[in-house]
Structures are given as C-alpha cells and as structure tokens.
Design a protein around this nucleic acid. Sequence first.
DNA 1: GCCAACGTTGGC
DNA 2: GCCAACGTTGGC
Length: 133
Amino acid sequence: MAFFLAKTDPETYSLDDLAREGRTTWDGVRNNTALIAIRAMRPGDEVLIYHSQGQAAVVGLAEVVSEPRQDPNDPKLWVVDFEFKGRLARPVTLREIKETGQFNDFNLVRMSRLSTMPAPENFVQWVKDQQPE
DNA sequence: GCCAACGTTGGC
DNA sequence: GCCAACGTTGGC
C-alpha cells in the first residue's frame, strides 16, 4: 500500500463535501507532476487530504477505490476515485510541518503549487503521531 | 488582497 | 526550439 497527499481548496471542494458524498471522482488535476501521482495510485492506497486555503493543513484521510482512468472530458488528464475515511481529530498545519524541519525534502514543502504527490511513509506516520489518543 | 513561483502559450 | 508574456496557484 502506498501513501499520497491531495490538496483541495475547501471553498471549492472540502473534506466535509467528501464526507457527505462518501465517494468522489478526484478530477481537475492538470499539472503533469501531479498527474504522475494520480496515475501511480492503486485501490487500497491511502490519501491524506489537505486544505490549501484558510488554514493550510492536513485535515483528513481518504482511500483510493478505483484504478486511475482518463478524464472523459480531456484524454490528457487522469482522474481516480476516493472514498472518505475520516477526519483528523487534530489538523496538522503546514506551519508545524515546516517547523519540524524533518520534511524539507517533501514536495509539500518544496513545491508549494503541486497539488497531488506521493507522501513519504515517515510523514504519514508523523501526522498520525500528532493525533490525540 | 498581494505577491512569488512556476507552468503554459504563442510569436518568432 | 527559445523565451517573453501571461495565467494560475498557494501561502501569508
């Protein structure tokens, strides 16, 4: 199982929207580096959901529930289906991710405009460690 | 709301 | 194929 991080502007589509729908097609990714991450996703992979507006923070978890497929409206683009898995009891902000200094190599920190990327396992573990018991 | 980073487009 | 102009995104 692999881990990814997917950003969303909560004014456009929030974690609450995903919670309400249960399952959604993650579309609208245009950047090639981000599309490479979409195409690497497989059912069962875990996705950290990140809100990129307001308080920039990892806010929840989703699971990949389809193979990636071409966007029917634009064959250059790829989409994949996510299922809501849960909210983090405590969002983990970009500020504190940067403050640890442990993740300066992670593209979340290095390439601020990248919207979808693999997440290193130690980052996922650290996010989980930030949660209350 | 502003600005920096950076991807894309179009003219040559 | 290069590069300037432009548009978009995300962080603050």
